[in-house]
Amino acid sequence: MIALLRALSGLILWAGAFSLIYGLQGLLCSPQVSGWTSALRYDGRELLIGTWLLCLALLSWLTLRLWRGRTKESLLEWLGPILALTGFVATLFTGFPVVVATTCA
């Protein structure tokens, strides 16, 4: 069971990162929070980009750790780093609109 969780951890972290980034964007675009951020001259874009970069750093660390921590060549040991890399690339592409698009349109 632990090997299966280790193998799926990259995709689980991608799902968490996706939910965190776009949930945070929805929260920052809500009328209650946007009133606070406009008074502070802060639109929350820096927070979104920082969250995206933090998630990318976490997934890259996980990919390297799973790649170096392989002890035997079983399917789940081989699948762990591949799915962690897939989660990294998915986070890169699904979080990229946060960087290039406006925060609230």
Rank of each mutant, 00 (worst) to 15 (best):
M1L: 12
I2Q: 11
A3H: 10
L4S: 06
L4Y: 05
L5Y: 06
R6E: 01
R6K: 11
A7I: 00
A7W: 01
S9M: 03
S9D: 00
S9P: 01
G10A: 08
L13C: 07
W14K: 00
W14R: 03
A15C: 14
A17V: 09
F18A: 13
F18I: 01
S19R: 12
L20G: 02
I21Y: 07
Y22G: 00
Y22P: 00
Y22N: 05
G23E: 10
G23K: 05
L24P: 02
L24C: 06
L24G: 06
L24W: 10
Q25R: 15
G26V: 09
G26D: 08
L27P: 01
L27Q: 04
L27C: 02
L28W: 08
L28Q: 07
L28I: 15
C29L: 11
S30Y: 09
S30W: 08
P31I: 01
P31H: 01
P31L: 04
P31Y: 02
Q32T: 12
Q32C: 00
Q32N: 07
V33T: 10
G35E: 12
G35M: 12
G35K: 10
W36Q: 01
W36R: 10
T37S: 08
T37P: 05
T37G: 07
A39D: 13
A39R: 08
R41V: 04
Y42D: 10
D43I: 04
D43L: 03
G44C: 03
G44E: 02
E46F: 11
L47Y: 03
L47T: 07
L48R: 00
L48T: 04
G50D: 07
W52I: 05
W52C: 01
W52V: 04
W52K: 07
L53N: 04
C55H: 11
L56H: 06
A57K: 10
L58E: 02
L58F: 12
L58V: 15
L59E: 14
S60K: 07
W61H: 02
L62N: 01
T63C: 10
L64Y: 13
L64G: 15
L64M: 11
L64F: 14
R65M: 00
R65E: 07
L66C: 04
L66Q: 15
L66T: 03
R68D: 03
G69M: 05
G69T: 04
R70D: 09
K72H: 12
E73W: 12
S74L: 03
L76Q: 05
L76N: 05
L76M: 06
E77S: 15
W78A: 09
W78N: 07
W78R: 14
L79F: 13
L79P: 02
L79A: 15
L79T: 14
P81W: 04
I82W: 09
L83W: 05
L83N: 05
L83H: 07
A84Q: 04
A84K: 01
A84S: 15
A84C: 12
T86K: 02
T86G: 13
T86W: 07
T86P: 03
G87D: 08
F88V: 01
F88A: 08
A90T: 09
T91F: 10
T91E: 08
F93S: 02
F93Q: 03
T94A: 12
T94S: 12
T94H: 07
G95Q: 04
F96T: 10
P97R: 13
V98Y: 11
V98T: 14
V99K: 01
V99S: 09
V100W: 05
T102W: 06
T103E: 01
C104K: 02
C104A: 06
A105Q: 08
A105K: 04
A105V: 09
